[in-house]
């Protein structure tokens, strides 16, 4: 069996030089895209308030955070409506007494109103579980516990929603020391 030369061949010094520099550029690009993706909704978005319930897990990689279960994470659907796992959906929101609540669930981006972009996590016969990328709120452990204890199931989170529907949580509505 003959093995193609390119599998054995060691890359030249010039190739290695260019390759390593491009790798560094790739790493910096990944970090930049992550950073811009994080801040763009805050820079360009509209601020809304969502109702949520905090619980406190710890991530091995990212430190302590409060897990946020929003009311809009579980959306009622017509019986036997199928949604593909990980598919993108848009949830239109309406304001009621200062809190934004679920209005309609759309597979395509709505043309008007306030809407938030999410991904289907689970689909049951009459509900669909949607995540928006705002379900984790990082803070020191003591503060995270305080948030959980003082706010209980009554927490409200300030969220920025960009024109494309991408959302970013920026903080809790002031309740005690946990703002």
């Amino acid at each position: 069996m003959t093995i193609p030369d390119w599998l054995h061949k060691k890359p030249g010094k010039r190739t290695i030089q260019i390759g390593l520099i491009l790798t560094l550029c790739f790493q910096m690009a990944v970090l930049s895209v992550e950073y811009l993706g994080s801040v763009l909704p805050i820079w360009t978005g509209e601020e809304i308030i969502l109702k949520t319930e905090p619980v406190d897990p710890r991530s091995l990689f990212r430190g302590n955070f409060v897990r946020l279960n929003y009311e809009i994470n579980r959306i009622p659907t017509e019986p036997h409506t199928e949604f593909k796992i990980a598919s993108v959906v848009y949830v239109s929101l309406v304001e009621s007494k200062g809190i934004w609540q679920f209005d309609t669930l759309n597979a395509a981006k709505p043309h008007q109103g306030t809407y938030i972009r999410g991904r289907v996590r689970r689909s049951d016969s009459d509900t669909v579980q949607v995540e928006y990328g705002i379900e984790a709120f990082f803070m020191p452990r003591e503060k995270a516990l305080k948030v959980q204890n003082e706010m209980g199931g009554q927490a409200q989170v300030r969220v920025f929603v960009a024109p494309n529907g991408k959302a970013r949580a920026v903080g809790f509505q002031c309740l005690g020391d946990a703002c």
């Binding site: 970090l31 992550e34 994080s38 705002i134 920026v170």
Partner: peptide, 17 residues
């Protein structure tokens, strides 16, 4: 990667990081 996710409270699918 992890710090940026932490600073901006990215709750997106964390295995992507």
């Amino acid at each position: 990667i992890m710090l940026i996710a932490q600073i901006y409270h990215l709750g997106e699918h964390f295995p992507d990081g």
